[in-house]
């Protein structure tokens, strides 16, 4: 069974004067125990997608299921089975950390006898046990975020939606959260659906990444599959023992695009269109011309570069809408 599946999922916001298609024909298939990240700029449709999948919003067209349950017909059941970290931590600042967690445990029907144990387990997991009896309002921004993540996972949901999970966390706290996500996906087969614009995080965590812009999914795949999309932009760096003008002449004569050249460091970066086929021949020819090669390495385009190019190529003005998304 798929953890999440959408078919042409669409969400429109309409008022008297405005129309906005926030999510446009979204098609996703996310396996159980998968970590799927949805990347996109502000207002791309990430938060709306999560709200649709957690039964908070009704789709305008298309449909979706979570754990085999229809998001319209079984919305309440879905809400009980998934965990959700909302865009803002949404914690009760007047309540203590413990009271916040107890409240959520009761809302999600955690058996009374298990509540205490489960709270202790989750606060240890996210390193907030020292703050357990403090008012949540007195916590730092990062601690509040950790409390909100702990709350989303308190009832042991098989599918967890996290909207910008590490947005306000210090690097060490972000690492704790990432490690827990990886651990839970691997050892307890939890499925994670993460909305983020943190490319590093998406690449480190995700088995697959979707890139969304203007409500439409514009690319999807594993990090390496996404790199394949811009394979023709992979550069090959050559470093030589001695630099000579002939090196540059060789690449120019062979009509290879020079991306970077540094005569002091004795390096040159070029784009080789048929990279796998032609690289050995180029090396052979340079050696044949008595150039001593110290290093050759392919430099694949970064996910950031791929993301930015994809998003920029899709940039068309959006109609106004009062909802702001991250």
């Amino acid at each position: 069974m798929l953890a999440v599946e959408t078919h042409q999922l669409t969400k429109d916001y309409e008022t008297k004067d405005t129309f906005l298609r926030a999510v446009n024909n979204l098609n996703l298939k996310i396996e159980e125990a998968e970590i799927y990240s949805l990347l996109g700029p502000n207002g791309a449709g990430k938060t709306t997608s999560v709200r649709l999948l957690t039964g908070l919003l009704r789709p305008s067209e298309g449909g979706a299921s979570v754990l085999g349950l229809d998001i319209v017909k079984n919305a309440q059941e879905i809400r009980g089975k998934v965990g959700l970290l909302t865009e803002t931590p949404a914690i009760y600042e007047r309540l203590t950390v413990r009271q916040n967690l107890e409240f959520i445990a009761r809302l999600y029907n955690v058996p009374k006898k298990d509540i205490r144990h489960r709270i202790e387990e989750i606060i240890d997991l996210f390193d907030i046990s020292e703050k357990i009896d403090l008012p949540a309002g007195s916590l730092s921004k990062g601690m509040k975020q950790k409390l909100a993540i702990a709350r989303a996972m308190l009832h042991d949901p098989p599918v967890i939606f996290l909207d910008e999970p590490t947005a306000s966390l210090a690097p060490e706290s972000a690492k704790i959260v990432r490690d827990q996500i990886l651990k839970l996906a691997k050892t307890e087969k939890r499925t994670f659906f993460i909305c983020t614009h943190n490319l590093f995080e998406a690449e480190r965590l995700s088995s697959r990444i979707g890139i969304i812009n203007h409500g439409s999914l514009i690319a999807q795949g594993t990090p390496s599959e996404l790199r394949e999309l811009k394979k023709d932009e992979t550069t090959t760096l050559f470093r030589f023992d001695q630099w000579s003008k002939e090196i540059k002449d060789y690449f120019e004569t062979n009509k290879l695009e020079i991306v970077e050249m540094d005569t002091e460091r004795k390096i040159i970066s070029v784009i080789i269109p048929k990279i796998e086929q032609d690289t050995p021949g180029i090396i052979k020819e340079l050696i044949h011309q008595n150039h001593s090669i110290v290093e050759v390495k392919h430099e694949f385009p970064t996910l950031e570069k791929i993301y930015l190019e994809l998003v920029e190529s899709e940039s068309v003005p959006r109609e106004n809408h009062e909802e702001e998304e991250s």
């Binding site: 309440q76 809400r79 009980g80 803002t88 914690i91 959520i104 809302l107 999600y108």
Partner: peptide
Amino acid sequence: ERKTMEAVLASPMS
């Protein structure tokens, strides 16, 4: 106002 309503709305409460 305090943006805590979303957590309630996202819960299984009818």
